[in-house]
């Protein structure tokens, strides 16, 4: 419940504050958001499986974001930033799809 409130609060704050993103962070933010989404869907699936653990969720969330950002940063340094971001997005997209599929099975039993 608190998690849902937090999400709503964050969206509201983003809408109201109209934040400007620092130039240095601009390339990493989209990847970080997708990585965080992956962690969130993973957490939701675990919750429905009855094995949700706060600690695991927090660690997976933070590490997902950091690893994704690091990969993109490395890619930028190596000159393959565009390709590597695409790769990261694809992998995270696949994970999100499989997590959502599991959630769907829980919710709709189908």
């Amino acid at each position: 419940m608190i998690a849902a409130y937090g999400l709503a609060l964050g969206v509201l704050a983003g809408l109201l504050m109209e934040p400007s993103i620092p130039e240095a962070l601009a390339p990493y933010l989209p990847i970080a958001v997708v990585a965080a989404l992956d962690a969130v869907f993973g957490g939701l699936r675990a919750h429905l499986d009855g094995v949700f653990d706060d600690k695991v969720f927090v660690i997976s969330f933070v590490s997902n974001v950091l690893i994704a950002a690091t990969i993109v940063y490395l890619g930028d340094q190596l000159g393959v930033g565009g390709q590597l971001s695409t790769g990261v997005i694809v992998v995270l997209g696949i994970r999100i799809f499989s997590n959502v599929a599991a959630i769907r099975r829980h919710v709709f039993h189908a």
Binding site: G6, L7, A8, G14, A36
Partner: peptide, 8 residues
């Protein structure tokens, strides 16, 4: 964390 995610 979720608030940060929504904000970002």
């Amino acid at each position: 964390l979720l608030a940060v995610l929504g904000f970002a």
